[in-house]
Amino acid sequence: MRSSWLFFVPLAFAAAGIAFAENSAPQGTTTIALPTGVGPTFKPGPGAKAAGKYCTTCHSSAYVAIQPPLNATQWAAEVTKMRKVYGASIPDDAAATIVQYLTTEYGKP
């Protein structure tokens, strides 16, 4: 406990001294690099390529993998939402392929 306290105090002061004065708005540039290639890839199967091409334009495949098991109607509604509400440019035939793929690999009957 004591050693971690001693360890953190100088760090906190260092960060405070460089970045800003207490109770003033920040100045200067903050830059980060978001990690890439993190998280699951689409499960293999017919349609995986289409899903990889169209879904991951806007979000990682994890957004699919974390969903509770959805049935065909629910997956169709999700794909329709992506196209109609969020404006994803997915052709009709690819959308049908993706719905079938998601229902098979990430769904329930």
Binding site: P26, Q27, G28, T29, T30, T31, I32, A33, L34, C58
Partner: peptide, 11 residues
């Protein structure tokens, strides 16, 4: 939405 700036100059 994934269009997030990764560098911002507060100044």
């Amino acid at each position: 939405l994934a269009g997030i700036p990764q560098s911002i100059d507060a100044s």
